[in-house]
Design a protein around this nucleic acid. Sequence first.
DNA 1: TTGTAAGCGTTATCAA
DNA 2: TTGATAACGCTTACAA
Lengths: 339, 339
Amino acid sequence: MPRKPRLRSGSGVTLHEIGLAAGVSAITVSRALNSPERVSEALRNKILETVDRLGYVPNRSARSLASARSRTILVLVPSLTNTVFIDTLVGVEEVLRVAGYQMLIGNTHYSASEELQLLRAYLEHQPDGILVTGLSQPPEFGAILEKLGIPAVYMMDLTDDGRLCVGFSQEEAGAAITAHLLARGYRRIAFMGAQLDERVLKRLEGYRATLHAAQLYDAKLEFLDPSPSSMQMGAEALERLLREHPDCDAVFCCNDDLAIGAIAQCHRLGLAVPDRVAIAGFNDLQPAAWTTPALTTVATPRNRIGAEAARLLLERIAGLVISAPRQDLGFAVVARGSS
Amino acid sequence: MPRKPRLRSGSGVTLHEIGLAAGVSAITVSRALNSPERVSEALRNKILETVDRLGYVPNRSARSLASARSRTILVLVPSLTNTVFIDTLVGVEEVLRVAGYQMLIGNTHYSASEELQLLRAYLEHQPDGILVTGLSQPPEFGAILEKLGIPAVYMMDLTDDGRLCVGFSQEEAGAAITAHLLARGYRRIAFMGAQLDERVLKRLEGYRATLHAAQLYDAKLEFLDPSPSSMQMGAEALERLLREHPDCDAVFCCNDDLAIGAIAQCHRLGLAVPDRVAIAGFNDLQPAAWTTPALTTVATPRNRIGAEAARLLLERIAGLVISAPRQDLGFAVVARGSS
DNA sequence: TTGTAAGCGTTATCAA
DNA sequence: TTGATAACGCTTACAA
């Protein structure tokens, strides 16, 4: 005599009940749904019909608990308001969805400590794998993944230290756009950087190296602000830059937002772009093509980075041999009117 | 004699093991963590110390299964690349996170059928509640929620049919910006609409009603395209509009993207904004303030909508009495240089 | 090909 | 205040 009925969750229909209705055992129903080839066709059809009729909805918690696999991937991004990472997430989602995996999104707000905290919090979900933005997590981060044996793929940048990564060289990209400005004849090229996360700093390194090589580097032309990027900041920084260094003839902004603000400010100040000052951005977001003049920038394969990273992670989880642990998806300088 | 050790998931440390190490039962450990006031202080401290020392990570699947509560909220949005919904998600996340709830994001791609499909798919997670964008889901949608008793809050728009909703009147907002253009003296005001989702159509209704009232309505001034919105579309539509209707003196674009493309195209065509043609957008995204001239638009409280909707849903889940099932968060016409 | 039994880690129930 | 026991719904291991 059963004694303790408990609160049921969800639709209330269980594998066991489907089995009763179809005249088979629960495990056969499970097999009919998850490995159909292991159940005779007649039985399978009968079961699937019953599943449909009763509106059975599998319980993912029970499944995770029994199988020790959550089919869940944690994705950590520095920001949700920055389109760059949204594009990446969209790429991730497209791949995971098809594979039956669930994406959990953690917003680190560009903070290493929040990133660690989020990782710990999301561990409750027993993620089967993790997608991380950038390479510079605190040491505990890697230690936790190591200890729990959770596979990870690092997005947006490249490394040779053995970690799986999908991205492009931030430093080379910074160098390339700087070289483009040099090639166009600009000589007093400033750098405008916000947030100063690892990617911005690498672009800065590329900028420095290129100008050094051309013997045109001048530290005074670097505008660096650790606060979050905005068009407002781009506008203010441009004004200050030109006031303090009137001979500045070009600005490499670390992202399109700053660049859009800078161009707008040029309009307000009555300065011709690119004749008085050239402006270049980074990322090639949609608005970059619609400023006046259109913005020269660096196109980055954000969507593909997300998709490829997800694919790589799933391969890793499936235990496949990873032929290319380091996927360089490249970038492209897009020359438009602003330079 | 135990016979079947199975694969363990996660960190491997369980409540039971913490209990063993601390000399108490598993259930006491559970209580120490979840309702500390029900465990004596001495024991509690000892337990918490052990939890820390062994690095215990709760297993959310087991918890959901046993408690019949997933602490998970499904959030359905039409798009992830549209900043409007990202802002909403950020508001949702801020509230859910603090409350210990997990957010599952479903991207419907503006499709009713995908929306239904996503709902079905995410039912596996036994969500405790759902946040939905818009009011016009297919009938089965409501039927499923009803049948399973899943509470829902509808975002971005308002209704009086009893559903919980948080938003503002899309129609009134469309009317308000149209009235603004009228007040500035424009008489041949066009409407430019993309995507044609329910919100755009309601803004269109507001536009029509206002122009009808002023006896200035002209159906030929409506540009409607069901394909996704883009700056490109705004540029092309503006050119066509002015070619076919040279007397058009203002355009209400259903969103800022179209408006930004339209303004850019005016620059390319050498048309003065707003003297030759005024442009107004909708949403007040960041770039709206940085076009030349700056864009007149309608500011919408997206972040607050997300946060309030989440709060309302949590109250509903907690079984609290809902005093205001309909929360009108309003909007504001932001008059800038483009009109 | 199908079924039985046990176990996944947690919480609800009831008892002490 | 603490604990024993069963139950949540599913899948693994093993047997038929």
